[in-house]
Structure formats: structure tokens, C-alpha cells
Simulated assay, not measured.
Amino acid sequence: MQFSIPTDLPGLLPFCAAAVTVLLGLFALFAPGLTLRALRLQPRETRPEAIGEPRSVIAGFWLGVGIVALLFFDQMFIQLCLGAGWLMSGFGRFVSILSDDGSTFVNWITCILMLLLAFAALAPAFGFVS
């Protein structure tokens, strides 16, 4: 298998979304405390194992999906998987904004970022960019 970097917009969008996903995953893997603070969470002193959640659940998923999407960015199914994941994450954030009294600047920026990553992955799959 040969690794290639895209040269056109339909390949570049999902590739960039995958790269951002991998970078976020690496950040969560190697800086779980900062990740929890960025997400406005903190482990309790009675539950120190909670620091493992960003490493396993968040970083593991983002790294797994992101690496596969980097390697196979030109496959429509991979673009759909990456885009659907970010779209549902953005939708969950939007529901939280509406129902959990979470209408803060950080939540809106995070929601917009997730939706932009979803668009970057889904646009080529649905033929919105050529």
C-alpha cells in the first residue's frame, strides 16, 4: 500500500478532516489532563482512574478513525464514516446547547468546528465539491 497526499479539493477536504481528527486524538492520548480541562471536566480525587477515559474512549476512537481515514481518504465509505461521526458529535453538542442550558461561546465554537469537519469529510462523498 502506498501513502499519497491528495492534490485536488475533493481529496484534500476529507484528508484534512482526518488529519485534524488524528491531531485531536494525539492530544487526548498524550495530554489527558489538558483534554479534560478543555472539555470542562475533571476527575475526582476518589476516582483517579477517570484520567484514563480521554486516553481510551476519546483518543482511541479519534486515532483509529483518523488514521484509517488518512490512509484511505479517497474511499467514499471512509469519508462517510468520518463525516457521520463528526456530524453526530456536532448534533449531540447542538442538542446539549438547546436542552442542557449550555449556550456558551465554547460550546458554539466546538459545535461549529465539528460541523465543519463533518462537511469536509461528507462534501466529496455526496458530490458537493468536484
Rank of each mutant, 00 (worst) to 15 (best):
R55C: 10
A69E: 04
G85A: 04
C111N: 12
F77W: 05
G90S: 07
L122N: 14
T110S: 14
R93G: 02
V20T: 07
L13P: 11
V65N: 03
G83V: 08
Q2P: 07
L80Y: 09
A59T: 06
C16T: 12
L63T: 03
A59V: 02
G60P: 06
T110F: 05
L41C: 03
A18R: 02
L24F: 13
F77Y: 03
M76Q: 14
W108M: 12
G60R: 10
M114V: 00
T35A: 15
I51L: 14
R47P: 00
G60I: 03
P48K: 10
F30Q: 08
W108N: 06
M88V: 13
D8L: 03
L34S: 07
G90E: 11
A17S: 15
G25T: 09
L116C: 14
G52C: 03
V20L: 13
P14R: 14
F77N: 11
A118V: 12
T7I: 04
T46S: 15
I67Y: 03
L98D: 00
G85F: 13
L116D: 05
Q2T: 08
R44Y: 10
L87W: 10
P32L: 07
Q2F: 02
D8F: 00
S99C: 08
F128V: 07
F128W: 15
A28Q: 09
I5L: 09
A69H: 03
L70V: 02
R93C: 07
R55Y: 06
V22K: 08
A17H: 09
I78L: 06
I5Q: 01
V129N: 12
Q79G: 11
V106W: 03
T104K: 05
I97P: 09
A28M: 12
E53L: 02
L80S: 00
R93Q: 10
A123T: 06
D74T: 05
R37L: 01
T110R: 02
L26Y: 01
G52W: 01
I51Y: 07
L98Y: 09
I58F: 15
I112E: 02
L116S: 14
A28Y: 13
L70F: 05
S96T: 01
L24Q: 08
I78H: 05
F91H: 06
T21G: 08
